[in-house]
């Protein structure tokens, strides 16, 4: 029975991953090297800030990021004062005031990222019926995660001649079904990076993907750092317990 353990474990792994195999007919996006991958992965703070700039200047015209708060931006290297200034640039509806009226005020660090549309129907109406999804968890909610989001950014091509495109749809290699309602969002020099990095499409795609991974999993660095310590501790304890077990059992033939 013992020799089949390996096969059993492998089979469970197979079961666990099999739903992912049903991704659809779209091409598999290229696997990129990300700094947050691996056991010791961490975020590239400069890339996160550039990605934040791309999100603010490009994506946020249509896509909300409602689970992230302005205060979270201190985690990617902005100072408290910078965060206050960033938050103050948006208008937040608050109220009711003493007269019972709603009023607009400048944003505060404790506010959520302001959404471009008041609700989903308004978003649909402004986008030909298509709903631009919220991006807070987009790298976790799509098969392929960051590689898929990155692929989507760089995957716009002309439609093949034999493909009939619906009106207002664009062709994207990596989108399931290939017809996507979002027009290619990035073009060279679309933003001017404050840190002087050249704003090519691949560069912006990588930066904004980095930013969205952080937005979806802000705990990632803490999680991996703690994980290394916990696993090391447990490995040691397991080893010690194995020795104890052998010592205890040494006088028992079994």
């Amino acid at each position: 029975m013992r020799r089949t353990v390996g096969a059993l474990v492998a089979a469970f792994v197979l079961i666990g991953s099999s739903p992912a195999l049903a991704a659809g007919e779209a091409a598999v996006p290229p696997s990129m090297k990300w700094t947050f991958d691996g056991l010791f992965g961490s975020f590239d703070r400069a890339a996160l800030r550039r990605g934040f700039q791309v999100y603010t200047e490009v994506c946020s015209a249509c896509h909300s990021l409602r689970l992230v708060h302005y205060r979270n931006l201190t985690e990617i290297g902005f100072s408290e004062d910078q965060v206050k200034a960033i938050a103050a640039e948006v208008e937040v509806t608050d109220g009711p005031d003493a007269e019972g009226e709603m009023f607009d005020r400048p944003g505060l660090p404790s506010d959520r990222f302001v959404s471009p549309f008041p609700n989903d129907n308004a978003a649909r109406a402004a986008n030909n019926g298509a709903l631009p999804p919220d991006l807070s968890l987009v790298t976790k909610s799509r098969i392929g995660g960051p590689n898929y989001i990155h692929g989507l950014m760089v995957g716009y091509r002309d439609a093949p001649d034999d493909m009939e495109m619906s009106e207002g749809m664009e062709y994207n290699m990596y989108f399931p079904g290939h017809q996507i309602a979002m027009a290619a969002p990035l073009s060279d020099e679309l933003v001017e990076y404050t840190d002087g990095t050249e704003a090519t499409v691949p560069q912006m795609a990588k930066d904004v993907t980095n930013f969205l991974v952080w937005a979806a999993e802000p705990e990632l660095e803490e999680r991996k750092r703690m994980g290394v310590k916990v696993v090391l501790f447990l490995l040691l304890l397991t080893g010690m317990l194995f020795a104890v077990k052998r010592a205890v059992w040494s006088n028992v033939p079994h």
């Binding site: 999680r223 991996k224 703690m226 994980g227 290394v228 916990v230 696993v231 447990l234 490995l235 397991t238």
Partner: peptide, 10 residues
Amino acid sequence: LTIFAGFVFF
């Protein structure tokens, strides 16, 4: 727990 932690953290 060692294997489990591998999944939880990584």
